[in-house]
C-alpha cells in the first residue's frame, strides 16, 4: 500500500536550536497517527513541515507519493491543514470563509454548496453559517478551523491540537469526527493530551526534544500483560510482608489500605496466582485491579526519565 505521508530524515533548525531531528515515519490510508509530546517537543514544527508551511532544514516529505519540495502545488492539493491557531478572518461569516477556503483548494462551483453543507454538518456548524466568525466563541472558532481543513475533501488531514478550547461534549464530537475521517483517509494530529490519543489514534509517535522517542500501534499495546496490580485490603499487614510472598518484587503503599504490587516477571497466569495467594493470607482482599502499562507510563518514563539522566 502506498503511504499517504512519508517523511525521511526530517531536520529543522531554528538558529542553533534543533526543533526536529531525524524524523522518519509513514502514514497509511485508514490510519490516525497521533504525535504526542510535551510542550516544545517539535510537534507543531513537524506538522508545519508536512503542510508545506515551513521548509525542512534537511530531509524530504512525500504526500501521496508527490515530493512536497519539487511539486508543492500538486502535493498540497490533497492536504487539509488546521494550524495551531485556526487561520480565521474575523470579519467574514462562516459561510463566506468556508467558501473562500474551498475556492483556494480548487473546489468547483457545482459542488461548492454540497461541500460547504457537508463540512458544516460534520463540524456542527449548520446553525451558525451566517454569523461572523469574530463573534463566535473559541470552541466554535476551533470547529470552523476544522471545517476549513476538511471542506475540500482532502485525503490527508493534518490537525494541530484540534480539541484545544472545546468543552467536553464538543471534544467527544470532534474525536468521533476524527475517527470517522480516519476510517476513509489518513489523519495526523498532534496533542499533549494522553486520553485523546488513546481515544482516537490507531498509532502513536512520542516526540521528545525533536526526536522520535517511542512509536507503537495502540491496539497491540492494549494486549500486553501488566506486571503491576492495584489492591485494596480491609486488614492491611506490614509493608514488608508483601515481599515475603513469592513472585512479588516490591510493593508501594498508595493510601491507607491501598497498595501497588510489582511482579518479578509477568506472564498470563500471574494474575490468578497472585489473587489466590492474597485471598489465602486472610488480609481481606476488597479490590484487585491489573494496571495496564498505559501510554501515560511510557510518556512519563520517556519525558521525565531522560531529564533525570541529564
Amino acid at each position: 500500500m502506498k503511504p499517504l505521508i512519508k517523511t525521511e530524515g526530517l531536520y529543522r533548525y531554528y538558529g542553533d536550536h534543533c526543533a526536529v531531528q531525524n524524523l522518519s515515519f509513514e502514514l497509511y490510508p485508514g490510519e490516525v497517527l497521533g504525535l504526542l509530546g510535551p510542550n516544545g517537543a517539535g510537534k507543531s514544527s513537524t506538522l508545519r513541515m508536512i503542510a508545506g508551511n515551513l521548509a525542512p532544514s534537511e530531509g524530504s516529505v512525500w504526500i501521496d507519493g508527490v515530493d512536497l519540495q519539487s511539486d508543492p502545488i500538486q502535493a498540497k492539493s490533497v492536504l487539509g491543514y488546521l494550524p495551531e491557531n485556526p487561520p480565521l478572518y474575523p470579519e467574514l461569516t462562516v459561510d463566506e470563509y468556508l467558501r473562500y477556503c474551498a475556492r483556494l483548494h480548487c473546489v468547483s462551483n457545482d459542488v461548492m454548496d454540497k461541500a460547504l453543507s457537508e463540512a458544516k454538518q460534520r463540524c456542527g456548524l449548520s446553525e451558525v453559517g451566517l454569523r461572523l466568525i469574530g463573534n463566535l466563541s473559541k470552541g466554535y472558532q476551533q470547529r470552523v478551523g476544522i471545517a476549513q481543513a476538511i471542506v475540500h475533501n482532502p485525503t490527508v488531514v493534518i490537525l494541530d491540537e484540534p480539541t484545544v478550547g472545546l468543552d467536553p461534549i464538543q471534544i467527544r464530537e470532534i474525536r468521533s469526527l476524527i475517527c470517522d475521517l480516519g476510517s476513509e483517509r489518513g489523519v495526523i494530529l498532534s496533542t499533549h493530551i494522553l486520553p485523546e490519543v488513546q481515544a482516537t489514534c490507531s498509532r502513536v509517535l512520542i516526540l521528545h526534544r525533536g526526536e522520535q522517542a517511542y512509536a507503537a500501534s495502540l491496539q497491540q499495546d492494549a494486549h500486553q500483560a501488566g506486571n503491576c496490580f492495584l489492591i485494596r485490603l480491609a486488614k492491611p499487614p506490614k509493608l514488608d510482608s508483601f515481599t515475603a510472598l513469592p513472585g512479588i518484587s516490591h510493593a508501594d503503599q498508595l493510601a491507607d489500605g491501598h497498595y501497588r504490587l510489582h511482579l518479578e516477571n509477568a506472564d498470563t497466569g500471574s494474575a490468578s496466582k497472585l489473587s489466590e495467594q492474597l485471598v489465602q493470607t486472610g488480609w481481606g482482599l476488597e479490590e484487585f485491579i491489573s494496571e495496564q502499562p498505559g501510554l501515560e507510563q511510557v510518556f512519563v518514563r520517556i519525558t521525565t526519565g531522560e531529564q533525570g539522566a541529564i
Partner: peptide
C-alpha cells in the same frame, strides 16, 4: 498559513 498550505 491558510494560503501557504493551499495549493496556490
Amino acid at each position: 498559513n491558510l494560503l501557504l498550505s493551499a495549493p496556490v
